[in-house]
């Protein structure tokens, strides 16, 4: 089980960074550029780990990135990778969807704690924007999750995943899927919902004081965490995957859509994004919930 979990984390780390590299490449192509090499994100993170010093604001600042990392890793370990496989399941038999939904909030919390302790007002502004966005962001995703849980009469991710043999939830519950997908775009931190670290508005937002190894941990956890979110979407709506290849294909498709949407939309303000999320995807998902 330990090795299994380690393998899950390693895979998520590698795929997360590869996807991030792809994201930069695809964005570059959309802009008409060549973009950096695929491994550029690895280089960045390794370089940050190798910085000779990094600024420290006290023990809570130390603990903040660690809590973020815990949030990402625990979320990942409670989501099984493959459908019906004995490997790469992590601790998923000890958890369920509600637990995962709550573990996903741990990362913003760790972020908030670490950034609050450094006393930079820009960081806290970013955090407040993030937590405000979370109000709108979680609503459609929760509705979709509730719909799926009621439809499958279980909150077990594995059960929801295997119950899709006749048809993917994305097609049997399309409205729920649309609602959850818009919310997922926000979870990935892409435009138009990237209000948290908007450099034009709040300096660098939450990351303002993160440097060196702290920033490296923040980057790594965000790579792991975004892969976990992709995984959750695939498991809930696209029927999971039988093999790693299928998993990569499905997550990549989802990721590609998110990237392309992010590249063509301008950013909402915080209030706009909450209002949009509460109106449009929530409305869609609620209609979907009525059909369930």
């Amino acid at each position: 089980m330990f090795l299994d979990s380690l393998a899950m984390i390693a895979l998520a780390y590698i795929f997360g960074f590869l996807y991030y590299g792809l994201y930069r490449n695809i964005s570059a192509r959309v802009h008409g550029r060549f973009g950096p090499s695929l491994a550029q994100s690895f280089f960045d993170s390794i370089k940050l780990f190798l910085k000779e010093n990094s600024t420290n604001f006290g023990w809570m600042f130390y603990a903040g990135p660690i809590i973020m990392m815990i949030g990402a890793i625990t979320t990942l370990l409670f989501i099984p990778y493959l459908n019906g496989s004995e490997h790469l399941v992590g601790l998923s038999q000890y958890g369920n969807l509600i637990l995962v939904l709550y573990l996903m909030v741990l990362e913003p919390l760790g972020n908030a704690m670490g950034i609050g302790s450094n006393g930079n007002p820009f960081g806290v502004m970013g955090i407040t924007r993030g937590l405000t966005r979370l109000i709108g962001l979680e609503l459609p995703f929760y509705i979709a999750a509730i719909g799926l849980m009621i439809a499958n009469h279980s909150a077990d991710i594995g059960v929801i995943m295997t119950n899709q043999s006749e048809g993917y939830n994305a097609f049997t519950h399309p409205l729920l899927f649309i609602g959850a997908f818009i919310s997922f775009l926000g979870f990935m931190g892409k435009s138009p919902f990237d209000v948290v670290g908007a450099p034009q508005e709040v300096y660098s937002g939450p990351a303002t004081e993160f440097s060196g190894k702290f920033f490296a941990i923040a980057l790594s956890q965000s790579a792991i965490f975004s892969f976990a979110k992709l995984l959750l979407m695939v498991n809930l709506f696209l029927g999971g995957a039988q093999s790693l290849v299928e998993l990569v294909a499905k997550t990549f498709v989802l990721f590609l859509v998110a990237v392309l949407v992010g590249n063509v939309y301008a950013r909402f303000t915080t209030a706009q994004s909450v209002e949009f999320l509460v109106r449009v995807p929530t409305g869609i998902a609620l209609v979907g919930l009525l059909f369930v």
């Binding site: 060549f34 973009g35 950096p36 960045d44 450099p199 300096y203 004081e209 993160f210 920033f215």
Partner: peptide
């Protein structure tokens, strides 16, 4: 010019 090819990225804060 696309300097991101060389791994050069702009950041807003001196810490990074």
């Amino acid at each position: 010019y696309d300097i991101e090819r060389l791994g050069v990225v702009g950041v807003a804060t001196p810490r990074q």
